[in-house]
């Protein structure tokens, strides 16, 4: 069975989705990722979907699930590199992916994660100000 590789980078996990997901693959990813977060006690998860041309409600739900699951395991999730067409489609579909952090590219996502973890516990307000306004 195909699997999406999950790479570990310091405190973070990096997932680059290079193929169009079918349901089984997405469900596997969800399970694997949660396992990895617990095993490595990662503090952040970066999902790069720049190569994904279609995100439907099922995929959207998986992304939302991953974010929520990681959240309760104390890891932040950032989705990076969404295609413009995908973003427009998701909005039209009625799926704004509330509660999922997004960034333009892997670099910016990394910065976002670093600052989220850095500011954790110190200054919650500032974090809110910068990324959630």
């Amino acid at each position: 069975m195909d699997r999406i590789p999950i790479l570990r980078m310091g405190h973070f996990l990096l997932v680059t989705i290079q193929v169009d997901l079918y349901d089984r693959l997405a469900l596997n990813l969800e399970a694997d990722l949660v396992q990895m977060v617990s095993k490595t006690s990662a503090q952040g998860v970066l999902i790069d979907i720049s190569a994904v041309s279609i995100v439907d409600s099922f995929m959207g739900r998986i992304i939302g699930n991953i974010a929520s699951m990681c959240k309760i395991m104390d890891a932040h999730t950032v989705v990076v590199g969404m295609q413009p067409a995908v973003a427009i489609t998701l909005i039209e579909l009625g799926l704004p992916l509330k509660g999922v952090y997004t960034a333009l590219d892997v670099q910016k996502g990394m910065n976002l994660l670093t600052s989220m973890i850095g500011s954790q516990g110190e200054d919650e307000d500032e974090e809110e100000d910068d990324f959630d306004s």
Binding site: S53, I54, D56, F58, P84, A85, I88, T89, E92, L93
Partner: peptide, 17 residues
Amino acid sequence: GLVNQTKLITAASELVR
């Protein structure tokens, strides 16, 4: 166009599902 393509394929994907 790319956006309309994406919309169509996404809709198709929902219905197939």
